[in-house]
Write a protein that binds this DNA or RNA. Sequence first.
DNA 1: GTAGCCTTGATT
DNA 2: AATCAAGGCTAC
Length: 420
Amino acid sequence: MKMIEAVTDSLPDLDSDKKAKSLFNFGKCRVCKDKATGIHYGVASCEGCKGFFKRSVEKNEKYVCYFGYKCEITPKQRKKCKFCRWKACLAAGMSFEGIKMGRIPKIEKERAKFCTDSLSDEEQDPKMDVDIDVQAKNSPSSNSLSPVPYNGDLVPVKKTYPDLVYFDQPSVKVINSDDFLVSFEIDKLLEPQLERSHLVFSMLRDRCYQLFVQFTEKYEKQYDRALRVLRKLEASLVNENLSKAELWENFVKETSYHTKTSFMYVKQLPGFETIDPNDLITILDMNIFILYGLRVQKLFINGEHYIIHDNNVQFNRNNMYKCFGIDLTNRIMYYHARLNSLNMSNQEISLLIPYVLSSTKSDFVDPDSIRTVNEYYKHALAQEFLVSKRSPTFINQLAQYLSYTVEISNKCRNLQITDS
DNA sequence: GTAGCCTTGATT
DNA sequence: AATCAAGGCTAC
């Protein structure tokens, strides 16, 4: 008997043959290239990606990529970046609208087989290389996804899932890209006639850059240090054992330093001396966080924060979590990642700052002066963008990214109230 | 949280 | 009845 049992047990081939007959080969998972176990949410996919998609939708997850928004999704690496995996799920065409219960009609099955086979034969990698524009939400035309699960008309092309859920689309504008684009066009058209203005603008440009260099001197040194750490020439400064209270104390000190030096800096910006001192304080107060972000922008590298606080403490993501909580930290990191992707020059940032500051809306004592200053910087910045050959897309993106700071600033203020 | 396996119920 | 995917369960 034992022999027989052993023999029958050792003959899984029969079983698997039976199973193999009933099991349709779905090829590779269209999300991660693992073995697909069936059509899940409209896409041939593995159990892992099926579950991941379900969990993501159920919990209305808001993922963030810390590695440049183009992570490769493979069976081994798929757990590393939820954002890119989620993006891949959508790119593959997963959606709840695509759900279909029950038996698959024979013709559809054949069609699916044909498509999956031909897809796994020729490398489909280029599909995933499509530059992932996380801003696709409001510009469905250009970079939005075009999921094509299967060709042909027998299997309907699945609709894209509404969209990635990022942080809520901000409604408040920090800068007005429309106004800006108009000025951009005027500068382009009237370039020869604006020579005199150009002189003014180039003076603005030089002075602002000079001030910006002073303003960011401390962080420029930290940037060099960060690069050394990244190249493993210097040990990391991370201290994971600091308490929230200690980290908070550091943060408060840094903020205090920032506020003081910002005031000195802003006062020297060309044109800002014409602004009423009370208004200047209002402007600074309303923009203190956005200004800090632009000041230390360079220190956000590859999804990590390399700012160094007092006592040589790197205020990295983990330390930020402790201080700010996950949501705010993610928002900040996300904002900087997006802004970083624009690769703005120091010249651009040095003109962007006064432009943003003078774009502030509030009940000012003397709003006219601010408006005048704002006009000058708008043209100077447009000029600078022209030199850098920036596209209107760039300007729209910049405006959009900057608007993320509104929510961040609000949350930063709330932090101060609840934690001090 | 992830993913392999199992149950349930819809569809042919 | 057979076949399929969604969702539940649960060991990692």
